[in-house]
């Protein structure tokens, strides 16, 4: 099939950037979206042009590297699907496809479709862990975990840290991402001793990094490729309030 691509091109952080239009004449419907991008890049190299830079690695929907806004939607039109798992059979012959980077205050563009998501890293470093040193763990089955809670914790832990939730949100909020991590640990007995500091520290860094507040639009859940539920945001709010209260009591 034939496609017209409108792709965001930006040389570096300080460049203003803009759209360029490219024509692809022979796209296989079985190819993945990123394989289509490979074909575009091969074409650009052959034409002595600079290929489009984009982040990707696993191409299996699990590493969270890929990050494109396709026709206005983070990771494109398919629900619960990352850019790398999107296949060209979901587009039609002659279509114009617009491709942009994830945009957010806290995700500056580095080049073309590549953004800097290190703000996510700093949030995790603030408290996204249980403080258990290597070698100090008790026998695993001494910590039984209710199966339902374990499943719920898994659902939260399935977040791949891609940032689509932030890109989808008009406020550029990271509440879904932070809520997922806080929830995973809040649902497991292992996470309880540090639950207050954890949520307070992570939220503080989230605010420092310039992510916006949550106004309950639900856009994050709708665009999240792992279908992380907004219930995680509710739990985050609850954890936060309860942590605040217990800190005040002390």
């Amino acid at each position: 099939m034939r496609l017209t691509l409108k792709v965001w091109r930006q040389k570096n952080k300080s460049d203003k950037g803009g759209f360029e239009t490219y024509q692809l004449n022979n796209v296989d419907t079985h190819a993945s979206f990123l394989e289509m991008m490979d074909v575009l890049n091969e074409q650009l190299v052959n034409e002595n042009k600079i290929p489009v830079a984009f982040d990707h690695d696993c191409r299996e929907g699990i590493c969270g590297a890929c990050s494109m806004v396709i026709n206005g939607r983070p990771h494109g039109p398919l629900k619960g699907t990352t850019t790398c798992q999107l296949h060209m059979r979901h587009f039609h012959d002659g279509e114009t496809v617009t491709i942009e980077p994830f945009r957010a205050n806290a995700f500056p563009v580095l080049k073309d479709l590549v953004v800097d998501r290190s703000s996510f890293e700093r949030i995790q470093q603030a408290g996204g862990y249980i403080s258990v040193g290597t070698g100090s763990a008790p026998e695993a089955n001494n910590i039984p975990v209710n199966k339902v809670d374990a499943e719920k914790a898994f659902d939260s832990a399935a977040c791949i840290g891609c940032g689509a939730c932030v890109a989808a949100c008009k406020n550029g909020s990271a509440m879904l991402f932070v809520g997922a991590k806080v929830s995973q640990y809040a649902l497991l007995p292992q996470g309880h001793p540090e639950r207050n500091e954890r949520v307070l520290n992570m939220v503080a860094v989230m605010d420092e990094e310039g992510f916006g507040g949550c106004t309950n639009t639900g856009a994050c859940e709708a665009e999240c490729p792992k279908e992380i539920s907004v219930a995680n945001i509710m739990r985050l709010n609850r954890e936060y309030i309860s942590a605040k209260l217990s800190v005040e009591k002390e």
Partner: peptide, 10 residues
């Protein structure tokens, strides 16, 4: 396994 469970691996 002990270590991972203590870290909160679900």
């Amino acid at each position: 396994i002990d270590q991972c469970v203590a870290q909160g691996v679900p």
